[in-house]
């Protein structure tokens, strides 16, 4: 699978055509909203409506999921085109054009949680001269830690390229004071496997510092994990009775007539025509 991060920096990759795909493709929308729902579940938000930060909000699909659960959100994204799509789609939250690798500043302790769908892997790339992925991750996590309130969590879904990028991300997060780790959903599946970085800025009594359980997908009845091996119905194809000869006496006679009409030299029809030869012995 080609990785979009390799094709160019996000502000150029997500241009009008790419942003349009996000607005029109129902498949992308369904995958993204599923991941956003899972992120929201991992946040363990309190019952009342909360203020959530959406990092890499893009066309506002994850924002839609947040709004459905009655939470207010503020989104950050680097692509102008994607934000325009979000505006056209009537996104309910506020959006800012911002490069999270440069850091962002909100008043400290204001957000109750942070979600991010498929954005973190972009920070692992150096797209410009002077970009250092680790430094940019540090700037990001430092800003995130500052704007979350005590006990707030961040659930950041990402596609790691290698185990090294996982390590880089977790080490940057822990260095900035976050607790937590990576939750891998559906670890046995190649396609459904998803990585969520679940981090918490301190902890409170109703949100203990334990990682949520990963989904394993064993008892998931919506999607069958394997194709049922149906036995082939051989009986239908079984012959009834002995095989009928194709080239019988009538067929031979007809062919000889056809050949005569075509002007070929054909032997006369006799009582021996189309008869089996006697066996040699």
């Amino acid at each position: 699978m080609s990785r979009p991060e390799h094709q160019g920096p996000p502000e150029l990759f997500y241009d009008e055509t790419e942003a349009e795909k996000y607005a029109s493709s129902s498949r992308m929308t369904s995958i993204q909203s599923k991941m956003a729902e899972r992120c929201l579940e991992l946040l363990l938000l309190p019952e009342h409506p909360c203020l959530v930060l959406d990092i890499g909000c893009g066309s506002g699909i994850s924002g839609g999921v947040l709004a459905e659960s009655n939470h207010a959100w503020v989104g950050l994204d680097i692509s102008k085109a994607m934000l325009d799509v979000a505006l056209d789609g009537g996104a309910e939250g506020d959006m800012l054009l911002s490069d999270v690798g440069q850091g962002f500043r909100f008043r400290p302790g204001t957000f109750d949680g942070a979600v991010s769908v498929s954005a973190l892997q972009w920070l692992c790339n150096a797209d410009q001269k002077g970009h250092e992925p680790y430094k940019r991750l540090i700037a990001f996590f430092r800003s995130l830690y500052a704007c979350l309130n005590k006990g707030a969590r961040g659930a950041l879904q990402f596609y790691p390229e290698a185990s090294a990028s996982c390590e880089m991300i977790t080490s940057a997060a822990t260095r900035c004071g976050f607790g937590g780790g990576i939750v891998i959903d559906f670890p046995d599946s190649t396609r459904a496997k998803k990585y969520y970085l679940c981090v918490y800025a301190g902890h409170t009594s109703n949100r203990p510092p334990t990682l949520p359980k990963a989904l394993l997908g064993n008892d998931d009845e919506d999607e069958p994990t394997r194709i049922l091996n149906t036995t082939r119905d051989r009986d239908v194809r079984r012959r009834r009775g002995p095989r009928r000869p194709v080239k019988n006496r009538d067929w031979i006679k007809e062919k000889k007539d056809r050949m005569r009409l075509a002007g070929k030299t054909v032997k006369e029809d006799t009582k021996y025509t189309g008869r089996r030869r006697p066996s040699a012995w």
Binding site: K80, D94, M95, L96, L97, S98, Q102, F104
Partner: peptide, 14 residues
């Protein structure tokens, strides 16, 4: 513009 503040920084401001 269009209700979206541009918070991007130049390289020397990071």
């Amino acid at each position: 513009s269009k209700g979206i503040p541009n918070m991007l920084l130049t390289n020397d401001e990071v």
